[in-house]
Design a protein around this nucleic acid. Structure first.
Lengths: 111, 111
DNA sequence: ATCATTTATCGTAAATATACGATTATCTGT
DNA sequence: ACAGATAATCGTATATTTACGATAAATGAT
């Protein structure tokens, strides 16, 4: 009989996407960046480096993580890059998190 | 002048908590476990090992991560431990994620 | 052409996360 | 007291994340 390993596990697309979005949100500076972006129509990275006391390369790395998760998008406007939320994926993330937390289950809880 | 480093950054409690909750959700198997727990009043770890094809020690490790994030709680009932959602923190997480995604900002988006 | 500005990428060190098997601890039932 | 069952912990190997400084790429201004 074949041994079962973690590689055998199949997750639904929703589960995987939710985990990826959550991973993108798993560092407070990325939460902070997303809060900034959701509270104003747009944002330059340059503004971020003056707001956030981190090395420019580190901020760029965090922006890349948000980009790869699809939560933000960049518009190249050299030498600047203008970053915004990605509306479609932002909405999808909102929906996935909302669905996860939808069940309260206080009624018949056993502990 | 002092050099600014990542250690200088202060985040709000909400930002830190949101990041910690998100980190707990950043692995698909933990999402799966939480979905299971939110769809039934309770759950034994034993059931998880038969549902999830991972080593028992690995599942225990993931449960520990969820415990430490405060999203679940365990009731020792030896030799079993019964795990449930932690209602207070589950609610707090729901509120934090909802607040983050509350802003749509489609109106005056510039890109 | 050269310089200044902005952002990405590279290289790297340290910390954290993930998975496994083996072992240990704790309670039940015999 | 002993065996079985359940779950945590330990030890460990590998991969990923996080931070930094240094460098490179790309554009605009002089």
């Amino acid at each position: 009989m074949m041994k079962r390993t973690a590689a055998d596990i199949s997750y639904t697309e929703d589960e995987q996407d939710l985990a990826l979005f959550a991973k993108a949100l798993s560092h407070p500076v990325r939460v902070q960046i997303l809060k900034l972006l959701s509270n104003q129509p747009c944002c330059f990275t340059g503004e971020l480096t003056s707001i956030i006391p981190m090395a420019q390369s580190t901020i760029s790395q965090h922006l890349k993580a948000l980009l790869e998760a699809g939560l933000i998008q960049g518009e190249i406007n050299p030498p600047r890059v203008k970053y915004c939320l990605n509306p479609q994926n932002w909405q999808r993330a909102a929906t996935l998190f909302e669905a996860l937390f939808a069940h309260e289950r206080d009624e018949d809880r056993c502990c």
